[in-house]
Deep mutational scan, measured.
Amino acid sequence: MDVFMKGLSKAKEGVVAAAEKTKQGVAEAAGKTKEGVLYVGSKTKEGVVHGVATVAEKTKEQVTNVGGAVVTGVTAVAQKTVEGAGSIAAATGFVKKDQLGKNEEGAPQEGILEDMPVDPDNEAYEMPSEEGYQDYEPEA
């Protein structure tokens, strides 16, 4: 019985440690998101679009440190934060509304985080759909 109880105690310690790591990862992701939003706020009209992409990228980098179902929630929060940063930029006159959601080359930025393969159960990952990809044929 002692062996059984000791095993359960060790398992509990492992769960607590994993929860603490997840909590730490979420806190880091939130900190990076805040950094990115402050970065966007300090940019001029020309830099705002690039700044919004930076927020998304920093958040995406930190999301990889967070495991399990938390990833889905962090990704949703990050996307809403990026959308909010863009709205703030438009409201303050840093950028025109028609410039939001495009990178410096004018290509749409939507789907940055949505296409990231995420499995809350950590069982399997699927690649994003290939609808947006084109076949590449090298020139002879």
Rank of each mutant, 00 (worst) to 15 (best):
1 M>C: 00
4 F>D: 01
4 F>N: 00
9 S>P: 00
10 K>G: 01
16 V>F: 13
16 V>L: 12
16 V>R: 08
17 A>V: 10
19 A>T: 02
21 K>P: 00
21 K>V: 10
25 G>Q: 15
25 G>L: 15
28 E>D: 05
28 E>T: 07
29 A>G: 02
29 A>R: 02
29 A>E: 00
29 A>N: 01
31 G>T: 07
32 K>L: 14
32 K>E: 00
33 T>N: 00
35 E>V: 06
36 G>I: 15
36 G>W: 14
36 G>Y: 07
38 L>V: 08
39 Y>F: 11
40 V>K: 01
40 V>A: 03
41 G>I: 06
41 G>A: 11
41 G>T: 13
46 E>P: 02
48 V>I: 12
48 V>Q: 00
48 V>P: 00
48 V>D: 00
48 V>G: 01
49 V>K: 13
51 G>N: 06
52 V>G: 01
53 A>E: 08
57 E>C: 04
58 K>E: 01
59 T>Q: 01
61 E>C: 06
61 E>L: 08
62 Q>E: 03
62 Q>P: 02
63 V>G: 02
63 V>H: 01
67 G>E: 02
67 G>N: 04
67 G>R: 13
69 A>D: 03
69 A>Q: 09
69 A>W: 12
71 V>P: 01
72 T>V: 05
75 T>Q: 13
75 T>Y: 15
75 T>D: 03
76 A>V: 11
77 V>S: 02
77 V>C: 09
77 V>L: 14
78 A>R: 07
79 Q>R: 09
79 Q>S: 11
81 T>M: 11
86 G>R: 07
87 S>G: 15
87 S>M: 13
89 A>D: 03
90 A>E: 05
90 A>W: 14
93 G>Q: 04
98 D>I: 03
98 D>Q: 06
100 L>W: 02
105 E>S: 04
105 E>I: 01
105 E>H: 01
106 G>M: 06
106 G>V: 06
107 A>C: 05
107 A>M: 10
107 A>N: 09
107 A>K: 12
107 A>S: 10
108 P>F: 12
113 L>V: 15
114 E>W: 09
115 D>K: 09
116 M>G: 03
117 P>N: 09
119 D>L: 10
120 P>Y: 08
120 P>I: 07
122 N>G: 02
122 N>D: 10
122 N>Y: 03
126 E>V: 10
126 E>C: 14
127 M>I: 11
127 M>F: 10
129 S>R: 04
130 E>M: 08
130 E>G: 12
131 E>P: 09
133 Y>L: 12
133 Y>W: 09
133 Y>E: 10
137 E>C: 07
137 E>W: 07
137 E>V: 05
137 E>S: 10
138 P>G: 12
138 P>I: 04
139 E>G: 06
139 E>K: 10
140 A>L: 10
